[in-house]
C-alpha cells in the first residue's frame, strides 16, 4: 500500500468523526453506516459505566462509512482502537494487514458478534403481492430491490440469505440455489451501491415490490414512512453477525487496551444488549431477548459458517471477480 492512499483514506475517515471534547482517554470506534445511533447511545452508557468502575473519563469518537471502506481506512493507518463492522470478511482483511491476530473472532463470545440481525422483506402496505417466503420471490413479474453485493457488505448478506434459503428448501441443491439467485437478480431493476441507496430507491422512488433488508434497517424504513410499508419475516433466513474486534497494534501503541476490551465486553452486558435491542438489533442475552420478543419475529436462522463454510469461502465462491454473482450478468445469460 502506498502512503498516499493511506493519508487520503485517513483524512476522509477523519472527516466523518463526531468529535467529543478532550478527555483523559479517547477511543476510536470505526464502524459501518447504520450503527451511528446505536453507538451514540452506547458510548454515553459505556462512559458512565467506565467512570463509575475506574474513575477514568473516557471519550469515544465514532466514524461511520461503508464497511469495506472503513476497513481499508484502518488498514491504511486510521488509528481505530476498536472496529465494529458489517461482516467478518472486512475484519479478516484488517487481520491480514497485520493489525490484529488471525484468531480475533474467537476472543469474544458468539463469534465476536454481540448483536445480530437477519434479512427480512419490506413490502408495500397490505402486502399486495402476497409475499411470504423466499420461494415467493421466484414468481414472475416481481421487482426486487437489493444493493450490489460487490460494493455493499450488507447486500452480501442478502444474497447469501437467498442462496441459503433456496438450499434448504425441500429438494434444494446447489444447482437449484444458483438458479433461484440468478432469477432473483434478474428481477432487480437497480443495483444501488449501498444498502441505504436501495432503501431510498424502494421507499422514496417507489420502485419495486419487495426490498431485501436487514431487520434493523427495515424498522428504520418503517419509522420514516409510517403507514406505507410492512415487514414480512420469512420462515427461514440468515443470521447476520456483524462482528467487533479490538485492533491489537493500535491499542498496544496507544495504551488503550484495557478500555477498548472493556468497551466491547460491555456490549454483551444487559445495558449494552438493551441499547442494541432498542435499535432493532437482535440481542444475544436471553433475558433481553425475551423482553423484546414482540419486536423480533421468531424464525429459523442459519449461519454463514453452516451454509457456506465461512466468509472467506463465501467471498471467494460468490463475490470475487468471475464468481457466481458475476456469472449471473455474463453476456448471453440475460
Amino acid at each position: 500500500m502506498n502512503s498516499l492512499t493511506r493519508t487520503v483514506a485517513a483524512a476522509l475517515a477523519l472527516s466523518a468523526f463526531a468529535v467529543i471534547p478532550s478527555a483523559a482517554q479517547t477511543l476510536l470506534n470505526v464502524s459501518y453506516d447504520p450503527t451511528r445511533e446505536l453507538y451514540q447511545e452506547f458510548n454515553a452508557a459505556f462512559a458512565r459505566y467506565w467512570k463509575a468502575k475506574t474513575g477514568q473519563t473516557v471519550g469515544i469518537k465514532q466514524s461511520h462509512g461503508g464497511s469495506g471502506a472503513q476497513a481499508r481506512a484502518v488498514i491504511e493507518g486510521l488509528d481505530a482502537d476498536v472496529v465494529t463492522l458489517a461482516l467478518a470478511y472486512d475484519i479478516d482483511a484488517i487481520a491480514q494487514g497485520g493489525l490484529l491476530n488471525a484468531g480475533w473472532q474467537k476472543r469474544l463470545p458468539n463469534n465476536s458478534s454481540p448483536y445480530t440481525s437477519t434479512v427480512v422483506f419490506v413490502v408495500r402496505k397490505g402486502n399486495p403481492k402476497g409475499i411470504k417466503t423466499w420461494s415467493d420471490l421466484g414468481r414472475p413479474g416481481l421487482q426486487i430491490i437489493t444493493a450490489n453485493p460487490k460494493t455493499s457488505g450488507g447486500a452480501r448478506w442478502n444474497y447469501l440469505a437467498a442462496w441459503g434459503a433456496a438450499l434448504r428448501e425441500p429438494g434444494g441443491s446447489e444447482q437449484k440455489a444458483r438458479q433461484f439467485v440468478s432469477e432473483l437478480y434478474k428481477k432487480v431493476p437497480v443495483l444501488d451501491s449501498g444498502a441505504r441507496g436501495s432503501t431510498i430507491t424502494f421507499v422514496q422512488r417507489r420502485i419495486g415490490d419487495v426490498l431485501l433488508a436487514w431487520e434493523n434497517e427495515a424498522y428504520l424504513a418503517l419509522q420514516e414512512s409510517p403507514g406505507q410499508l410492512e415487514i414480512v419475516t420469512p420462515p427461514l433466513s440468515i443470521l447476520a453477525e456483524p462482528p467487533v474486534a479490538v485492533v491489537d497494534k493500535v491499542v498496544d501503541r496507544r495504551g488503550t487496551r484495557a478500555a477498548a476490551e472493556a468497551y466491547l465486553q460491555y456490549l454483551y452486558s444487559p445495558e449494552g444488549q438493551e441499547i442494541a435491542a432498542k435499535r432493532h438489533y437482535r440481542p444475544r442475552d436471553p433475558n433481553v431477548a425475551a423482553k423484546y420478543a414482540a419486536t423480533f419475529t421468531k424464525l429459523n436462522l442459519f449461519t454463514i459458517d453452516e451454509a457456506f463454510g465461512g466468509w472467506q469461502k463465501a467471498q471467494k465462491t460468490h463475490f470475487a471477480d468471475g464468481g457466481v454473482f458475476d456469472q449471473i450478468y455474463r453476456p448471453g445469460t440475460r
Partner: peptide
Amino acid sequence: LLIMTKLEQYDYAG
C-alpha cells in the same frame, strides 16, 4: 464503479 468494486475486494492492483 468497477474501480470501487475492486477496492471493496481489497484488490488494489486490479
